[in-house]
Amino acid sequence: MYQNMTSLAAQSDLPVLDLRSDTVTQPTAQMRAYMMDAKVGDDVYGDDTTINALEEKMATLLNKEAGLFLPSSTMSNLAAMMAHTQRGEEIIVGRNYHIFKYEAGGSSVLGGAFPYPLEAGPDGGLAPKDIEAAIKPDDSHFPISRLLSLENTHSGQAVSLSRMNACLDVADKHGLVKHLDGARFFNAITKLGVAPTDLVNRFDSINICLSKGLGAPVGAVLVGSQKTITAARRWRKMLGGGMRQAGMIAAAGIYALDHHITRLQDDHDRAAILAKELTALTKFNVTYQDNQTNMLFIEPAPKDIEPLRQHLGERAINMAGGSSIRIATHLDIDDDGLTRIIDGFKSYYS
């Protein structure tokens, strides 16, 4: 379905505006040039100086001991789960959080850890009372509650520090390990207006994706203690994530950290404008809460979904399908692109 729409959009002379996700971003010309100049070596031997520099840079930024470059956030989260837990232990996580819902059950299938899902609240965060109730007593009938995994952002929502800290208080009370899936971490701190360390100082490990809002073509960095990262590095090798001369893609991550964090506010601003304009159409429900970052969700009438996608596709605008459609702004959508998107929706409903 998506391939057909992309092909349709490609027939236009206009550049394609892809609303499906911020994972679709293209490396900028400046990023590509920086990648071409990267020094490389064999990372499995620890010889790739660019990868080493990226890992150190992220660890320093988050005030943690070490970092590990991995091909994806899915592998980063999985390596963290396997580093922190043993078979038969339990991971407390949100039901709609990425680790539970969208990572193919890897922590259970490959790590042998049991995920216990909780419902997230309207703000994207978990309720401390639900975490407290989920923690198991020391009884052979139950798995051992070992780890609390939180997510920020969740569905584009930046979860407040107060909510996060209340959850972490429960984890600390019961001696749980604490992991943050911060795939869109920098969107979160941009929205919250806090320093990186403000959000992560209480976590034992943090996953950060480079290929979403930061605009790198691939990769994620896991940060934590030296002990955690040493264990995760072994799991990365077992999972097939050991890389050789991968400094060229790590260089994209370094470039992104240096140049693409401050511009995330532009994505947030454009998402807010788009939400306001689409809400004014009053033709469908628009979900955009006060703590949204670069995402909004629309629910067109079922009869309109495919015709609307077709209409936008003819104007080189790629929109996902489904009953609740996510729209993500990112660095490939500038102000002119935003105007095209708004005009595309208005022309369909006029």
Score class of each variant (00 low, 15 high):
Ser140Tyr: 12
Val159Ser: 04
Gln292His: 04
Ser145Asn: 13
Ala83Gly: 10
Val16Thr: 14
Leu278Tyr: 01
Ile135His: 08
Leu126Glu: 02
Glu56Leu: 10
Ala171Trp: 15
Gly242Glu: 01
Thr230Ala: 03
Ala328Thr: 15
Leu14Asn: 15
Thr153Met: 04
Ala80Gly: 05
Lys136Cys: 05
Leu296Ala: 01
Ala256Val: 11
Tyr288Glu: 00
Ile305Gly: 04
Ala256Cys: 02
Ala328Leu: 07
Gln30Met: 09
Arg202Ile: 08
Leu168Arg: 09
Leu274Gly: 06
Gly337Cys: 09
Thr60Cys: 13
Ile305Pro: 08
Gly67Met: 11
His268Pro: 06
Gly105Ser: 09
Asp22Gly: 12
Ser107Ile: 10
Ala33Arg: 14
His98Pro: 00
Asp172Thr: 04
Ala79Phe: 01
Ala9Asn: 07
Asp48Pro: 15
Gly156His: 02
Phe142Met: 06
Ser140Met: 11
Gln26Ala: 13
Asp37Leu: 12
Pro71His: 09
Arg340Gln: 06
Glu277Val: 14
Lys64Gln: 08
Asn285Phe: 07
Ile325Asp: 02
Gly215Asp: 03
Ile51Arg: 07
Arg202Ala: 02
Leu210Thr: 10
Gly121Pro: 03
Leu147Ser: 05
Thr50Ser: 01
Gly182Tyr: 01
Arg309Ala: 01
Met1Asp: 15
Gln157Tyr: 08
Ser324Pro: 13
Gln265Ala: 15
Ser205Ile: 02
Met238Arg: 11
Asp336Pro: 03
Ser108Asp: 15
Leu308Tyr: 03
Lys303Asn: 12
Ile261His: 00
Gly182Asn: 05
Thr293Ile: 13
Gly175Asp: 10
Ile144Phe: 07
Gly105Lys: 05
Gln3Thr: 14
Asp43Asn: 14
Leu168Gly: 00
Met248Cys: 15
Ala246Arg: 10
Leu222Met: 07
Ala188Lys: 07
Phe69Ala: 03
Met1Ile: 15
Ile317Phe: 06
Glu132Tyr: 15
Ala316Leu: 05
Val16Glu: 08
Gly321Pro: 04
Gly106Thr: 04
Pro302Glu: 05
Asn187Gly: 07
Val223Lys: 05
Asn207Leu: 01
Asp343Gly: 06
Leu78Met: 06
Pro122Tyr: 00
Ala252His: 14
Met36Thr: 12
Val223Arg: 01
Ser72Cys: 06
Gly112Ile: 02
Gly215Pro: 04
Gly337Ile: 13
Ser145Ala: 09
Thr287Glu: 09
Val93Leu: 10
Leu192Thr: 08
Ser21Glu: 10
Ala246Phe: 12
Leu312Ile: 06
Leu274Gln: 03
Ala320Asn: 13
Leu68Trp: 05
Leu274Glu: 03
Phe142Trp: 13
Pro15Ala: 09
Lys303Trp: 04
Pro122Gly: 00
Ala301Cys: 02
Ile317Asp: 03
Gly219Met: 04
Pro27Phe: 07
Asn52Arg: 06
Phe297Lys: 14
Asp181Val: 14
Gly344Cys: 10
Gln292Ile: 06
Pro307Ile: 04
Arg146His: 07
Val16Phe: 12
Ile254Trp: 13
Ser225Leu: 11
Asp267Pro: 03
Asp198Cys: 02
Lys346Phe: 01
Tyr348Glu: 00
Leu168Asn: 00
Ala59Tyr: 07
Tyr349Trp: 05
Tyr45Val: 08
Asn291Ala: 04
Ala79Asp: 00
His311Phe: 05
Phe100Asp: 03
Ser108His: 13
Ser323Tyr: 13
Ala272Trp: 14
Asn4Glu: 13
